[in-house]
Structure formats: structure tokens, C-alpha cells
Design a protein around this nucleic acid. Structure first.
Length: 428
RNA sequence: GGAGGGAUGGCAGAGCGGCCGAAUGCGAGGCUCUUGAAAAGCCUUGAGGGGCAACCCUCCGUGGGUUCAAAUCCCACUCCCUCCGCCA
């Protein structure tokens, strides 16, 4: 949520920033007008309330002194003011609610250094690592769905039978590989991140805090009977962990990680990239996240990128880091580096992690603050997060990259301890 | 699912419809005393909003209601605890 104060002091600049993201900046004019109206109405309402409170005290005093006539006269006066208070209050609340609706559905503004541009074509490739376009053998040019089928480690038909298309089922070492990847990602970040196992069904407020509601209701699975939402990412519960709390600056940055399933309806992308593991409704992911001060945020953002890419490198995958253009940033993000891995069998760059910095945007929704060590008032925290490892696409790139001429898949050494020592996945 | 009890500031915990944004204790911060520390004493210490300011308003789990006036009375809901039942 944007800070309303920016609309008072910096309206034009904020509109310009929103326009960089490709959003319609005129909503901010409406918001600014509503804000002025709210302040005017509530000031008048507060004034009436102050008079009612003062009168009420006088009524009490009159009763104590046995001046019943005076008390009744004052009470009548106060009653009349009550009408006025209700009217002003109603108008103020209505305006405030409309303002809040606008604010909740208005995206974050991009960071100043986010690349200019409105589409993915404007994204900037920061670096590419381990990619040799001419260096892939024919045996690596087999898509993972064929490899998975051949080795009996990926059963797409059964997944679809159970739950529908875009639900997948791993078998044998394919299932083990899922677990191994997650365990690896957790272990690699355990030096600095507290492991959390949060609930994966959450309340509406929890989804609102991270920006996944109200605007993207169609994207999430909703259990109507209990009014709970299946999390699309562990970012949702982890960010809300400290909702409505005031942290001490000494506790920041708070680094958290979680291994959870993630559920996405993918309503807006029906039919796109749907083969194999490219886009699925349910998948496992290890998320790393930090709650921080504004000063800590930039270094943490880089650190999260380093941690995510470090794991991909250890797995022997080629990847590139992409600085997202302002217009390609997600709703809540101010700056985001996408990490894409190369899948030689599909010949596609697959988005494997979005390492995002949200500024105060999510914290304001979550009312997540800290008390500066120097004293003074509370300050909104900054939030950052990214996938340490998202299973399906890494699984896909991994089996394609490490496929051997004999059709087996070589297991990268870092994974072997988690795969009961196995060195390859072959037909069994 | 059934029965009962509860929800108040960082924590514990009091609170007759008006003198309650809230006693008291702990914790935290500052000062005095001290060579230093401890102890003791004194003072300060919730969040949010509006206003140049004086100052005003909101918040005692959430939402409604009664009243001139609600932490306090009424209704609904949520959450927590205890016991019973069921259960991986």
C-alpha cells in the first residue's frame, strides 16, 4: 500500500512513478481528493465529538450537584450534537473506505533504479552464468516430460487423473529428487535463516498483507466453507508472521525460510507453457525472506540473489539474472531480479526465482513496524524475498541438463547425500 | 462437536456508566548518590490520526447496539485456556 502522505506532498512524482509501471496514475488524483475529504470531514467530526465529551462531563457534574434541570438541558444539547456527529462520521467513514479500496488495489511504485520500460522485452539481463549455447549434446535435447516418462520418475497422466491437468505426480527417484532439492536448499541457507514450517491455509487478511488480495482473487485457491486461502507462496505466511507487531531494530534483519507447497490457479495463463512441469497448480518451494530496515534492504536484496544463484550453480545449471523493467514488476514489488535457468531439452529459459524488494509496501498493509535503536517513533519495515529453490522448473532443467547419452540422468554431487548416495537416475 | 472460564499498555494485573488512555508491580530509559558497580531514591516510558501551534480525536479481542456519556451495560462473532467426546 502506498503511503497517503506521498499523495499530499509528492502527488505528481508519485503519479509519474506509477506510470512507469504502466498503471493508470489518475487513480491517485481521486485518492488525493478523497484523502483531503477524509481529513476535512474527520476534523469536523472530531470537533463535534470534543464538544459532546465536554458537555457529557458537565451533565455528570450537574447531576452530582443535584441540578437536574441543568443536566437535562445540557443532555438535550448533546443529543442534538449526536445527530451531527453521526452524519459527519458516516460521510468520513464512507470516504475513508473508498480511499482504502483504491489504495489496496494500486500497485507499488518501482524503485528509481528499476530499468525503464513496460514489457518483458525491456528487462535487462544482468549476467549469464554457465550457458554455452553450442555446448549441449543431442542427448540433452530431450524435454523433461519425455525423460520423466522414459525413466518412470514423472507420471503426468496419473497426476491429471487425480486432480486434473497441471497437477503432477513424481515417482521413485523423481519423488526423491523433489525432496532432495528442498533439503539441499534448506541446508544451504540454514547458516543465516530460521526455518519455519507455517500453515499453508491462511485467512483473508494474511493474503491482503502481501498484496495477493483483493486484486488477484482469481489466482488463488479458496476454501469457501472455512474462508481460507491456499498459499501461492510461503512469502504469504512468512511476511504476516510479524503482522501488527513492533519489532526491535536489534532483531533486524529477521531472516526466515520455509519449505512449503504452493498453490496457484494460473487463471490468467491458461494454455501457456503448460507442458510437463513448466506451469503447475501445486508445487514445492523453499522460500527465503527478510524483514529489514531501509538501510539493510539493498545488501539483503543482493544476498538473496546470491543465495538463490549459488544453489543453482552447485546443481550445475546454467542461469541468468534479469533486472525486471518497471512495467514488468509484480503488483507489490519495487525492484525484482528474476533468475532464469536454462532447460536445454525444452530450449527455454525458465523463471526459477523472483527475488523481490517491496520497500514498505507490504509492511504498510501488514502493519509491520520496528522501533529504531535511536528511539523515536515506529518505522515501517522493508520486506524482501525470493525462491531459494522452486522445485518443478529446477527439476526439469536438472534432468535435461544432466541427461547422459545412455538416457540416464547424472545426479549432481551436492544432491547425492539426499538421494541415498545414488549417482544416477536410470531405468529401474 | 458439548460444557465452563477468559481476552485491558513490552509483560503481569486492577478497574463502581461520568473524576479512566486507564491503578499497581515488573521490565526499559534518564538522573541523584558511589572510585566503579550493586542497592536505594527521583523522574520518564503505548500506538495511530489531524493541526503551524495550543491542542483535539481514535484505540481496553472484532463488529453492532443502549446512553447526554461505555474498558464498564446488551447482542453477535473471533481467538485463547480447562474439562468431555472424536481423531492422524
Amino acid at each position: 500500500m502506498l503511503d497517503v502522505r506521498r499523495l499530499r506532498t509528492d502527488l505528481e512524482a508519485t503519479k509519474a512513478a506509477l506510470a512507469r509501471k504502466g498503471a493508470d496514475p489518475t487513480v491517485l488524483d481521486i485518492a488525493a481528493a478523497l484523502d483531503a475529504r477524509v481529513r476535512d470531514l474527520s476534523a469536523r467530526r472530531d470537533d463535534v465529538r470534543a464538544r459532546i465529551k465536554a458537555l457529557s462531563k458537565e451533565v455528570g457534574a450537574a447531576h452530582r450537584h443535584g441540578e437536574e434541570d441543568k443536566a437535562e438541558a445540557l443532555a438535550a444539547e448533546s443529543r442534538a450534537l449526536g445527530e451531527e456527529e453521526r452524519a459527519l462520521s458516516g460521510e468520513a467513514d464512507a470516504a475513508d473506505e473508498r480511499l482504502r479500496e483504491i489504495l489496496l488495489t494500486t500497485p507499488n511504485t518501482p524503485a528509481a533504479d528499476a530499468p525503464e520500460g513496460l514489457t518483458a522485452d525491456d528487462n535487462v539481463v544482468v549476467r549469464t552464468v554457465g550457458f554455452d549455447p553450442g555446448g549441449y549434446g543431442e542427448h540433452q535435447r530431450v524435454p523433461h516430460w519425455d525423460i520423466g516418462n522414459d525413466l518412470g520418475i514423472l507420471d503426468l497422466e496419473r497426476g491429471a487423473k487425480l486432480s486434473g491437468s497441471m497437477f503432477v505426480m513424481f515417482r521413485k527417484q523423481g519423488a526423491g529428487l523433489v525432496r532432495a532439492l528442498c533439503q539441499l536448499a534448506l541446508d544451504r541457507n540454514a547458516d543465516a535463516f530460521e526455518e519455519i514450517r507455517p500453515p499453508t491455509l491462511v485467512r483473508t487478511e494474511t493474503m491482503v498483507s502481501t498484496g495477493h488480495l483483493p486484486k488477484f482473487e482469481e489466482e488463488a485457491y479458496h476454501l469457501e466453507r472455512d474462508d481460507l486461502w491456499a498459499i501461492p507462496t510461503a512469502e504469504v505466511p512468512l511476511t504476516s508472521l510479524a503482522r501488527d507487531e513492533i519489532l526491535d531494530e536489534a532483531d533486524l534483519p529477521l531472516r526466515l525460510m520455509a519449505y512449503t507447497p504452493c498453490f496457484r490457479r494460473e487463471a490468467g495463463s491458461a494454455g501457456r507453457d503448460t507442458r510437463g512441469l513448466l506451469r503447475v497448480h501445486e508445487f514445492d518451494k523453499v522460500e527465503i525472506l527478510a524483514l529489514a530496515t531501509e538501510q539493510q534492504a539493498p545488501a539483503l536484496h543482493e544476498e538473496l540473489v546470491e543465495r538463490a544463484t549459488g544453489t543453482l550453480e552447485a546443481l550445475g545449471l546454467a542461469y541468468r539474472v534479469v533486472d525486471l523493467a518497471a512495467g514488468d514488476l509484480s503488483f507489490s514489488a519495487a525492484r525484482c531480479f528474476d533468475i532464469e535457468i536454462y532447460a536445454p531439452g525444452c530450449d527455454l529459459w525458465l523463471e526459477a526465482s523472483s527475488v523481490s524488494w517491496f520497500g514498505e509496501f507490504q509492511a504498510r498493509r501488514a502493519n509491520l513496524r520496528y522501533r529504531p535503536a535511536t528511539g523515536g517513533g515506529t518505522t515501517m519495515a522493508h520486506t524482501l524475498n525470493g525462491s531459494a529453490l522452486a522445485v518443478p522448473r529446477v527439476w526439469a532443467a536438472l534432468v535435461e541438463t544432466h541427461r547422459q547419452p545412455d538416457g540416464s540422468v547424472r545426479i549432481p554431487e551436492v544432491l547425492r547425500p539426499y538421494m541415498r548416495g545414488a549417482e544416477t537416475i536410470g531405468r529401474s
